[in-house]
Structures are given as C-alpha cells and as structure tokens.
Amino acid sequence: MKEIEKAIEVKNVTKSFKLFYDKPSTLKERLVFWNKKKADVRIILNNISLEIKKGETVALIGVNGSGKSTLLKMMTKIIYPTKGTIKTTGKITSLLELGAGFHPDFTGRENIYFNASIFGLTEKEINARLEDIISFSELGELIDSPVRTYSSGQYMRLAFSIAINVDAEILLIDEILSVGDQHFQEKCFKKLQELKESEKTIVIVSHSLDSIKSLCTRAIWINEGKIRLDAKTEKVIEEYIKVCG
C-alpha cells in the first residue's frame, strides 16, 4: 500500500514557559537582577509526538490549560518548541484569532486584501477569490464601509470568510465554531465539511463535543501536557466524558 503523506509531524516536543514574578525587561533590571533566578519553569507540553496524515480531520480536546492551543500555535510557527521538532508540509491557515490584523479604518474590501496577504496570498490569487469571499460573508454593500462600522458578528463573518477561502492545505482552527448567528454557523459547518471532503487537513481545538463528533474522524485528548488518548472520535469523547463530564 502506498504510504499516505504526512501533513503534520510532531516529534518529542516539549514546551515550557518561564513564569517570571517580575519580568526584567529593561537593561537596568537585567543587570541588577541577573543572578536572581526568580522564574518558575512551567511545562505546558511534555514530550509529545504525533502524526497527522494528509486529509485527516483531527480534534484536539482537553480541559482548559492542558496545552491544546499551545500545540496549535506551535504548528503555525507563532511560537516555537523548547525541545523537539514540528514539521508541516503545505500551506497553513490558522484561524486562531479571527480578524487579527484588520485595520478598522479600511473598508471590508481593503481588509480582505490586507488580511489575505497575511496568509501569504498574492494579489492575483486574492482577486480570483474576492467574489467568493464577499458572497460567503453575506455582507453585501457593507463590504465597502469601514470595518469599524461593523457589528462584532459581521466582523467575524468577514474574517471567517477570508480564512476559509484562502485555500490552504492545512487548516488550524481554535474554538471558533461559534461564529455569527445560527444561520451562518450552519453555513460555516457545511463549508468545513466540504473542505474535509476535499482532502484538506484540518485540526480543530474545541469544547463543543457535538460538532467535533460530526466533523472529525480522529480525536486527540491532551491532559496535563501529555497525550492521554488518541483514537476514533467517538471513543475518545466517551472516555473524556467519563473522566471530565
């Protein structure tokens, strides 16, 4: 059998944060307190290894502070592991925080260009997707008004429409399945289902177990910096509810 390509490969990754009681950030403080080790090292992820194959839809679950989001952030290269390596193949879009980098004074249309360029798209590529993005957001004529005039729901709708139309091979999503009103949520959900069928790799961090169940084929339960269980979604959720529910 042909080996299926790996999209994400996490190898022996440890991530620890230094917790300073009083973090030195000026030269004076650094010089005066150079030998005072007032930092606590807190290990968020402890020697984690996992592989996600191309086309898989995987959920990361776990209680707050278990390190799910940290893992996701390392996959996008916003932060880097203390030890170990993370290898990703293909273009990544992260929906960690929707609307990051929106400029309030620019119109929705201008922000599409600006935001999509953050995801590494060229002008041509954005032009080709512009109509899709605008129609998906259902903003209509509002698209030419400054973003600061949008309601928070409209803001999120635009941001989600951009991120989902970037056409990345890997999609990393952090707790944003609750965008907009009921109607728009269903639409997002459908779109994700569509992406799932089109061989995209999707990693979702969420507490909404119902949507995970219908979307993901595999779930990884992270507990206290370790992988507690990595199996089929139903099984993981069953166990998870037993312990944490």
């Binding site: 916003i78 990544i92 992260s94 960690l96 925080e97 990051a100 980098g101």
Partner: peptide, 9 residues
Amino acid sequence: AGIIKKVYF
C-alpha cells in the same frame, strides 16, 4: 505585537 501573537508571517 498584536498581530505577531496571532498570525504567522
């Protein structure tokens, strides 16, 4: 800082 914390580029 805001954008650096949230998006990779």
